[in-house]
């Protein structure tokens, strides 16, 4: 671990709350890229705004691009198309990636652009102090739903599936081995790869909804039946298929068009 930290981090310790899952995700990501035979200089980690956007920036000693709220995938799209050799990884949260940035998420999935998106779902807006998110389970208590959330949550894996993502997986931070393996697959996958990572937010979600880390463990237990599992989330690799990738198509267009170029 010390070696990994030396190799891949520029600032530590991180500032995440005790019990937050974000540190585990940072750890898993460092392990995943360490196990892959890819030039670290080719990674570009893009994030938006929110607790999960701090996983790569400032902690990872790679090119990191901490952008504005909700737009990480759009920034990533421009960078990837401009330099197709980059391995572009987006770290986003449920508020960032599915609330304010939901439009970019579905369109990037639709294009099947070769991006890897790790969406960390903690069911709440953590950084701003615990407001209701588009993933907050119905009737949960948040600082903007003290009577219980009146809204139905998104199933994000279903959402990106119908939008056309070609690699989709869901894990919780309590499944680090599976997560590391899946992160590697997602990075190597040619096309839009999406992993929803369920993560406890003891400070904002757990506290308000009386969930200890132990409760989170049973909530995120992949073995518990879907009925018992309050969040009704199937884990594992949900989609893995081949489909023409967007940047490749752009390159083909260039080939056809360049035959008539005049400067």
């Amino acid at each position: 671990m010390i070696n990994l930290i030396k190799k891949y981090s520029r600032f530590l310790p991180h500032k995440f709350c005790p019990g937050c899952g974000n540190g585990i995700i940072l750890n898993c990501f460092m392990r995943a890229i360490d196990q892959l035979d890819i030039d670290p200089n080719s990674y570009l980690c893009v994030s938006g705004i929110g607790c999960s956007s701090w996983i790569p920036s400032p902690y990872l000693n790679l090119d990191t691009f901490h952008t504005v709220h909700g737009r990480a995938i759009a920034y990533a799209t421009g960078a990837k198309v401009a330099n197709k050799k980059l391995n572009v990884i987006v770290f986003t949260g449920d508020g960032d990636g599915a609330g304010i940035g939901g439009n970019h998420l579905i369109h990037a999935a639709r294009r099947n652009i070769n991006l890897t998106v790790f969406l960390i779902n903690n069911y709440i807006y953590g950084m701003t102090g615990g407001q209701m998110a588009p993933t907050t389970p119905k009737n949960s208590i948040t600082s903007t739903s003290v009577f219980g959330s009146p809204e139905r949550p998104f199933d994000l894996c279903d959402l990106v599936k119908s939008a056309g993502a070609t690699y989709i997986a869901r894990w919780s931070v309590f499944q680090p081995r599976q997560l590391i393996k899946s992160m590697k697959e997602a990075i190597l996958h040619k096309g839009f790869a999406f992993i929803e990572i369920l993560s406890p937010c003891p400070t904002e979600f757990g506290r308000r909804n009386q969930l200890s880390i132990k409760d989170y463990l049973s909530l995120f237990d992949p073995k518990s039946s879907r009925e018992k599992n309050k969040f009704k989330t199937p884990f594992g690799i949900l989609v893995k298929k081949k489909s023409p990738e967007f940047c490749d198509i752009l390159d083909q267009i260039k080939k056809i068009a360049s035959k008539k170029g005049d400067i």
């Binding site: 759009a74 198309v81 970019h104 056809i256």
Partner: peptide
């Protein structure tokens, strides 16, 4: 595409402005 460049029709103007900032940092 004739001159080796890329055209992106984005989902909105927010994404359009974001994409060109990303592209600029990637060196174009």
């Amino acid at each position: 595409p004739e001159v080796g460049g890329d055209f992106l029709q984005m989902e909105d103007e927010i994404a359009s402005s974001a994409a060109i900032i990303g592209a600029s940092w990637a060196g174009v």
